[in-house]
């Protein structure tokens, strides 16, 4: 690696750092989230239509409501659910964007000021 490269954090290092932060947020920080109803639920209660909400057909999912079915400890259950969600999102969104990306090959040394 040349000197100029080391001035910046490498792409791989910054990606891994971002992933670690993401896993920390989903796996640990999420436990400390506010349990109050979110803005829409709160407004629905206030305006009087909260009771029209129906259970999603996915309500029986083993990960429903951000917990892992069968894991008793709340911290572990929520943290695991978060990590699983991050992994699934990363695979789906990452796979999709990798499929869609441009793979134009430029001759070595070509100046690329487009983009």
């Amino acid at each position: 690696m040349s000197r100029r490269v080391s001035r910046r954090v490498s792409r791989r290092a910054s990606w891994i750092a971002g992933l670690l932060v993401t896993l920390l947020v989903a796996g640990v920080v999420s436990y400390y989230a506010s349990a109050h109803p979110d803005g829409l639920e709160w407004a629905a209660g206030r305006a009087g239509f909260a009771d029209t909400a129906e259970d999603s057909a996915a309500a029986g999912s083993p990960l429903a409501d951000y917990g892992v079915a069968g894991v008793g400890d709340g911290r572990l259950s929520g943290g695991l659910a978060g990590v699983i969600g991050v992994a699934v999102t990363l695979v789906l969104a990452g796979g999709l964007t990798l499929l869609l990306r441009r793979r134009d090959r430029q001759p070595a040394g070509a100046s690329s000021s487009r983009d």
């Binding site: 792409r11 990606w15 971002g18 992933l19 932060v21 993401t22 896993l23 947020v25 989903a26 999420s30 989230a33 951000y66 978060g82 969600g85 991050v86 992994a87 999102t89 990363l90 789906l92 969104a93 990452g94 796979g95 999709l96 964007t97 990798l98 869609l100 990306r101």
Partner: peptide, 16 residues
């Protein structure tokens, strides 16, 4: 492209 996948995962995490 790799940043985009990571961003989606990050949004999922922070939305929790």
């Amino acid at each position: 492209a790799p940043l985009a996948g990571l961003t989606a995962a990050f949004v999922f995490a922070v939305q929790m």
